[in-house]
Write a protein that binds this DNA or RNA. Sequence first.
DNA 1: ACCTGAACACCGTTCAAGT
DNA 2: ACCTGAACACCGTTCAAGT
Lengths: 234, 234
Amino acid sequence: MAQQPEAGRRAPLNKERVLRAGVALADDSGIESLSMRRLAQELGVVPMALYKHVPNKEQLLDGMADTVVAQIDLSASGSDWKDVVRRRVLSARRVLLRHRWASQVIESRTGPTPAVLEYLDSMIGTFRDGGFSVDLTHHAMHAMGSRLLGFSQELFDDSGSAGPNGGAEALAAMAAKYPRIAELAAGAAHDTASAVGRSCDDQFEFEFALDLLLDGLEKLHQRGWTSTGSGSGA
Amino acid sequence: MAQQPEAGRRAPLNKERVLRAGVALADDSGIESLSMRRLAQELGVVPMALYKHVPNKEQLLDGMADTVVAQIDLSASGSDWKDVVRRRVLSARRVLLRHRWASQVIESRTGPTPAVLEYLDSMIGTFRDGGFSVDLTHHAMHAMGSRLLGFSQELFDDSGSAGPNGGAEALAAMAAKYPRIAELAAGAAHDTASAVGRSCDDQFEFEFALDLLLDGLEKLHQRGWTSTGSGSGA
DNA sequence: ACCTGAACACCGTTCAAGT
DNA sequence: ACCTGAACACCGTTCAAGT
């Protein structure tokens, strides 16, 4: 984790080593503990030395995000655009799950990094090669949104939110206040026969939403939908 | 903007005034310039005074997010679940557009605030009242994702990204490198007759994706879809 | 010419000293 | 008992002094 903290004869620093150490530090200790000073220390180097390879912290984060996005496997190909999109997105998701801090950092970038541009370009190409018009492709990309990159904001996480102050009674109070949420959290399965116990499978939810979007796009495409005339759907 | 900077006789501080000042400061100067010290100064108060009303900065942000989410109009009702969901989500979007910092802050919260819980609860109720099973409602909420709260990560913004160093030639270089993106950015309309010039209408894109999801959910609902058996769609 | 320690202008938060 | 200035342990980044 700490790379050769002995003085002298450290490997010469370069941008790639700085970025890789940043990724490793964020992976291990969380993005909130990534500071220029801490990263320098991790590399056995004086803080100022980093500024030789990276202009400032913001561009360090750009580079780290790029490093992660570049890991997405874009090699999927074939005649079925839906399958190709699906495989790339699921590859993106696997990458982003390995670097939990990355979605937050990607979102906070002001502009897209080169790897993001490359990813978007290849994804647009898949829709176009599948016969989508430029117009529909444009809307499709927006519809996919952050799901394209393998993440989507989860607004709540339905694992037990029992804090330190009281478990059962706090949960009961919440159930009384927000009965619909409690109903969902209670199992999401007491009106189906067999799915009891599966409280929330993130992967399933992700693919459910992904397929909902892909199926909807497929229907629009088959129907020859364009943004002029048909309004907004149905 | 600066509230009574004259010394003496300032209105007594309370939590609500602190939160409102925080929201105003973030609206005016951006979330990155919201610091405890700066906020205190804005209120004509010593930094330590804030800690009487808010335990720390993180909970200040919780409170600010809550203040914003509480502004969403939940009064929409009727027998058409889709219309009700749509109206609430578009109200959420209007609120979030008034407070550009809010989506980022909401995402960065570790747990949902009371106003978010109330919003989610009422939205779940709308699906349930529309006849959705608990199971399908659960997946529907995940599928809507952050779009429920009126925002969705836009991974790129297709307005001209010509930086200070070179306009046209930089753009041409980008077009050569990412031809599919350039094609989309170039107008998104040269294969339709009349929509020339509308480069990207955020509101349209938002509603397009929203309706794609709502239409897909409607079809699943009509079909009596459940998560057991039918796999993941179509 | 290169490198780097000290310094600058900030942070969020603690704590002891003052009233 | 209450309030608050100074202090602590940090930041990112600049810059001048040292080699």
